[in-house]
Design a protein around this nucleic acid. Structure first.
Lengths: 140, 140
DNA sequence: CTCTTAACTTGCATTTTGCAAGTGAATATC
DNA sequence: GATATTCACTTGCAAAATGCAAGTTAAGAG
């Protein structure tokens, strides 16, 4: 059961996001969901950062609770649950892309290929569209 | 003393940002710094979310450690310390703007004026420039 | 001097995180 | 159809982070 969180500290539009995904794991789940096409519990667990199962379960609950994600059992294999981003979840893609660009430019050891930052700089809107369509060539 | 953090979980460009500002307070400090023009310890403390002084001190330390912020004593009043964003810190502005837009569009009780989301939709690049210049009319 | 201001520190209770192991239901295998 | 395996969690508990209140130190004001 997703624990219902109390009052927000403020309704500053930046704070709103922080209250939902301002922690060390939630944005990684959203990254996997929106950029890597992952849809299942085990997929998220398999990411290199190594989220543990109790944390992952709580975050998926919270994302569902806040309407960024939906969860449903898979017909054909009722053990599985498929997580899908909602419109509100997909609307976070530009946030992720800006963070990725910042990381690509400021982490001296970044794993992002140069082509990503270059593509961003050449045509941000185009990059966003291709990432949205899942046809972006400059990601792992 | 800023505690030096250990190894990063990964060099995914999104994770890099999370490791630095993925918590409930750091982005609020950056918001105050980049969007509200706040420069002093007491200014940050005065924000409506109510950060406590030990947390604030630790976050400022960390931001300084990671090179997003500089700290220096004010000549003329050596009690004061002035915090300034670096280039890397200012480069987070687009991330904050995307988060603000998302919050403005998805928090039903958002404090953001409609003009902000409308200005974003009409001319994102122009909004970014005006926010960068501190001449943005659609913020509190 | 004494008082006040500014920027922290410290102590401690509460909450969150993280690891390892365990559970229960559904499906695959023998 | 009994057994093993997969999947998505739960549970227990130690460790770390957070949050509140009060205290400290250095500098400037009166």
């Amino acid at each position: 059961m997703g624990k219902v969180r109390g009052e927000l500290r403020s309704h500053c539009p930046i704070n709103f996001g922080i209250e939902i995904f301002g922690d060390r794991w939630t944005l990684l789940v959203l990254r996997d969901l929106l950029l890597q096409g992952k849809r299942r519990f085990g997929d998220f667990q398999a990411s290199e950062e190594g989220i543990s199962s109790n944390i992952l379960a709580e975050r998926l609950d919270r994302l569902t609770h806040y309407g960024l994600v939906t969860a449903e059992r898979v017909a054909g294999d009722r053990r599985q649950i498929r997580y899908e981003p909602t419109e509100a979840g997909r609307a976070l893609l530009p946030v992720l892309v800006e963070m990725a660009y910042w990381g690509a430019r400021h982490d001296p050891r970044t794993a992002a290929p140069k082509s990503f930052a270059l593509a961003y700089e050449a045509d941000r809107a185009g990059l966003l569209r291709s990432v949205e369509a899942g046809t972006n060539p400059s990601e792992g």
